[in-house]
Amino acid sequence: MTNGLFGEFGGSYVPEDLQVVLNQLTEAFETYKDDPEFQSEFNYYAKNFIGRDNPLTFAKNLTEKIGGAKIYLKREDLNHTGAHKINNVIGQILLAKRMGATRIIAETGAGQHGVATATACAMFNIPCIIYMGKTDMERQALNVFRMELLGAEVVPVTAGQGRLKDAVDAALNDLIENYAHTFYLIGSVVGPHPFPSMVKHFQSIISEEAKAQILEVEGKLPTAVVACAGGGSNAIGAFAHFIDDENVRLIGVEPKEAPTLTEGVPAVLHGFKCFTLLDEDGNPAPTYSIAAGLDYPGIGPEHSYLKQTGRAEYVAVTGDEALEAFKLLSRIEGIIPALESSHAIAYATKLAKDLDSDDIIIVNLSGRGDKDVDQVFEMEKGK
């Protein structure tokens, strides 16, 4: 990666005023990310607030039921606020403090990033605005209440489909208007440079821990690392420390209803270039997934590069397959996964059958399914 580019992907395609802000953000990030005092503060909150290290759990019952490879779960669902999102939020809010920001804005789809952002803003006493598509607000009403309980103002976005893409649009417009005192705490590895590299940096703690944990318990690297892929933050975090290990397969799992990497084409979206789903007029295509956090027509630029170079594989599963995985893991492991993570579980169970008993799969269980129980209840009731 050079100047925010991963091959042809990434970059910064934004108005001049916004580029000035992004240059300042890049300088601050490069200054602080390796600063010992910054690292020490991040590590403090990772341990004492997020609750890291979280476990790498052997899914014994799932492994026995499926057959084939051993399946391990990286338990991001056990983090404070229930997902991987808090890792990045703590890193960015510590950066925002150092930059003198007096107002935080964020976007959210499934609501987990919004909850994590509202949580951190409450702890650090910083005003917080969360943009969320109206459609997502309706299906994730519990997370909306959580954000408001934590003191955030949740702004419904009615433009477009009222989903994650539209929330990102609204947040970027806010940043352009209020950049002098506002920090955009972006939730995924999307947007113009330095956002993708910054989010990856803070989420790479997932694979840093998982790699050490699997070597400790199994004495070898996994055969494959599997993670769901929407915007791509949990997946790039799960992949990061394995990218140079060429014998480890990296597999991102998309919803078939929003197959960005399996069917998309290179295009500019939200100020960066990535594989994008386009309609017949060349605009970002409407998408839908039962998992609001995967409902995005683009993907992080590094994922686009990993796809193009063949270093990572990207596959798609249906919403029905994810729903069955949601129920399966709940029933036989006592772990209710997020619908986003259920996509990764669904593919891992297929993959495990084709591998041997001495193979190992790590699935990044990126979030817990508390937020989805009401939605699944209504879906099941409607059958």
Rank of each mutant, 00 (worst) to 15 (best):
G219R: 10
D35K: 03
K383V: 10
K33Q: 13
S289P: 07
S204F: 03
A122W: 12
A291F: 12
I50P: 12
E333V: 04
A285N: 13
I360G: 11
A258T: 08
D136E: 00
K383S: 14
K350P: 07
F275I: 11
R52T: 03
E153H: 13
Q203W: 12
C274D: 00
A116W: 07
P156F: 00
D53F: 13
Q308C: 07
D136T: 08
L5W: 08
Y305P: 13
H303K: 06
F42Q: 09
L328P: 04
A210S: 01
F377Q: 00
E333M: 01
V265W: 00
H193N: 04
A316I: 09
S289I: 08
L18A: 13
Q375F: 14
L365Y: 02
R75Y: 15
T63K: 07
D245T: 05
L73C: 02
G111I: 02
H303D: 02
G109A: 07
D295Q: 07
A325P: 03
R75I: 15
A141L: 05
V190G: 13
I236A: 14
K70Q: 15
V144S: 11
Y314Q: 00
I299L: 07
V168H: 08
V168T: 01
F272H: 00
T2F: 06
S357Y: 11
L215W: 09
G111H: 14
L56Y: 11
T349H: 13
M123A: 08
N87T: 07
S40M: 08
L329N: 02
V14D: 03
H84R: 12
G114K: 05
A171C: 08
S197Q: 01
